Simulated assay, not measured.
Amino acid sequence: MKVVGVVGYPASGKGEFSVIAGQLGIPVVVMGDMIRRKVIENGLELTDENIGAAARNLRAELGMDAVAILTAEEIAKINPNIVVIDGIRGDAEVTYFKSVFSDFSLLAITASFETRLLRMKNRGRSDDTTTPETLRSRDEREESFGLSRAVALADMRIENESSREEFAARIRDYLESLA
Score class of each variant (00 low, 15 high):
Met31Asn: 11
Arg56Leu: 15
Glu142Thr: 01
Arg116Phe: 01
Phe17Lys: 05
Gln23His: 14
Glu61Pro: 00
Ala53Ser: 12
Arg36His: 08
Val6Phe: 00
Ser102Ala: 14
Leu44Phe: 05
Arg136Ile: 02
Glu93Arg: 00
Ser12Asp: 12
Glu133Pro: 00
Asp127Trp: 03
Leu135Met: 08
Val29Thr: 03
Ala154His: 01
Asp33Glu: 12
Ile82Glu: 08
Val39Asp: 04
Arg157Asn: 13
Tyr174Trp: 08
Gly22Lys: 13
Phe104Ser: 02
Asp86Tyr: 02
Asn79Lys: 15
Val19Pro: 03
Glu114Lys: 15
Val29Trp: 09
Glu49Ile: 03
Val67Lys: 04
Phe17Gln: 05
Ile35Thr: 15
Ala76His: 12
Val4Leu: 15
Phe167Cys: 07
Val3Gln: 03
Lys38Met: 05
Thr110Met: 14
Tyr96Thr: 14
Arg125Cys: 00
Glu61Trp: 00
Leu24Ser: 11
Asp139Leu: 06
Glu161Cys: 10
Ile171His: 09
Thr95Asn: 14
Ile88Ala: 09
Leu70Arg: 03
Asn42Gln: 12
Ala168Arg: 13
Gly146Arg: 04
Ala66Trp: 01
Asn57Lys: 14
Met156His: 12
Leu153Pro: 07
Arg56Pro: 05
Asp139Gln: 02
Glu45Leu: 09
Ala111Met: 10
Ser163Met: 00
Ala150Lys: 06
Ala92Met: 06
Val84Trp: 09
Arg119Met: 02
Asn160Phe: 11
Glu61Thr: 04
Glu159Val: 14
Asn81Val: 03
Val67Pro: 06
Ala54Trp: 04
Leu46Cys: 09
Ala154Arg: 00
Gly90Thr: 07
Thr130Val: 12
Gly63Ser: 12
Glu143Val: 01
Met31Val: 07
Ser99Tyr: 07
Asn42Asp: 14
Gly52Leu: 09
Met64Asp: 11
Asn79Met: 15
Glu176Asn: 15
Ala60Phe: 00
Asp139Phe: 07
Gly90Ser: 06
Gly25Cys: 10
Ser102Asn: 14
Asn50Trp: 00
Asp86Gln: 02
Leu24Arg: 07
Phe104Pro: 04
Ala55Ser: 14
Thr71Met: 06
Phe113Asp: 07
Ser99Thr: 05
Asp127His: 04
Ala21Phe: 11
Ala54Phe: 02
Leu24Ala: 12
Arg36Asp: 13
Ile78Gln: 12
Gly90Asn: 06
Asn81Pro: 09
Glu161Val: 08
Val29Leu: 06
Thr130Trp: 02
Ile26Arg: 04
Ser102Met: 09
Ser112Lys: 13
Gly25Phe: 09
Met156Ser: 14
Val100Pro: 08
Arg149Glu: 13
Leu135His: 09
